[in-house]
Design a protein around this nucleic acid. Structure first.
Length: 282
DNA sequence: AAAGATGTTGCAAC
DNA sequence: GGTTGCAACATCTT
């Protein structure tokens, strides 16, 4: 569900509530969503949340006892601030309480793909080696991006979805970024002109920043921490618009499968470049 | 009404 | 390397 803009919105929303708060209680309804090898969940009680950050689509809590929590929402996970007067919601799998606070932090996930992982200090140090994330799309430099992308031999959509290439993009934003960059999702990076790569980079930053300002996209399940929907879905040009007319040229938006994912694009605005080899056979 | 789709990702198989 | 299909699971659409 949540991609970079949604996760960023959640992290920003969480800070005022739980930064420097001490965990007083943790109720777990579905134990399998807690992933831990060495640290018992009980060990979190009494620790303070020293920092809340985002790594790609991962939400990271740094705790005062040197442990770290990693929350991955996968498709339908939610983190919600709830007050006692609010009703208990179905699919709530864990609830954090904080010293002296009326609100609780609920972890909810309809499809149960997401998880909360607990790392000891040593495990946390080793984690980046086990799952090497690429740079953040909002921090990567153009030269690094360009140099790395032109070496890729698979379709551009597949590259952009790969979290070891860049961490944070998902199906919605890749489709939207490719549309605004006028790049066909099945293009091979080698066939992109240097102007096209530059446009792709600039568009990526612009789309993500705009989506963060609008607090993400709500298609079905995504909600901010107070239960608010995002607003970027109203700006979508291709995602969820199969058979609707392209806003630029009127051609009907098509949907195909690329890299195993439903992929929406405008066949007129996003042409597949032929590639120098085929275009100039001497 | 059964089948296919859904914002993710890790793994197996080819 | 690179791909594809599937699995985890609930719900909505065709």
């Amino acid at each position: 569900m949540p991609e970079l803009p949604e996760v960023e919105t959640i992290v920003q929303g969480l800070r005022p509530y739980i930064f420097k708060r001490k965990i007083s209680h943790l109720k777990i309804f579905l134990p399998k969503i807690i992933h831990t090898k060495k640290v018992s969940p009980n060990h979190l009680i009494g620790t303070t949340i020293e920092n809340i950050s985002r790594l790609g689509k991962n939400i990271i809590f740094q705790l005062s006892n040197e442990c770290h929590l990693r929350v991955h929402l996968k498709m339908t996970g939610q983190l919600l601030i709830k007050f006692p007067e609010e009703d208990f919601q179905k699919h709530t799998h864990a609830i954090f309480s904080f010293d002296g606070e009326r609100f609780k932090l609920n972890y909810r996930d309809i499809r149960k793909f997401g998880f909360i992982q607990i790392f000891s200090a040593e495990e946390w140090e080793k984690w980046p080696k086990e799952s090497p994330l690429g740079p953040d799309p909002l921090e990567v430099t153009f030269s690094f991006f360009e140099e790395k992308i032109i070496k890729q031999k698979r379709m551009i959509k597949s590259v952009l979805l790969d979290q070891t290439f860049l961490a944070g993009l998902g199906n919605i934003y890749v489709d939207e970024i490719l549309y605004h960059s006028k790049i066909h999702p099945q293009s091979l990076p080698i066939n992109l002109s240097s102007n096209a790569v530059q446009e792709l980079y600039q568009t990526m930053v612009k789309v993500l920043k705009t989506a963060i300002l609008l607090r993400g996209s709500t298609i079905r399940d995504y909600l901010g921490i107070s239960g608010e929907a995002g607003n970027y879905q109203s700006k979508h040009q291709v995602y969820g618009r199969v058979n609707a007319p392209c806003h630029k040229c009127g051609t009907l938006i098509r949907k195909i499968k690329v890299a195993g994912r439903g992929t929406c694009f405008c066949p007129t605005c996003q042409k597949l470049e032929q590639g120098r080899r085929q275009a100039d056979p001497l």
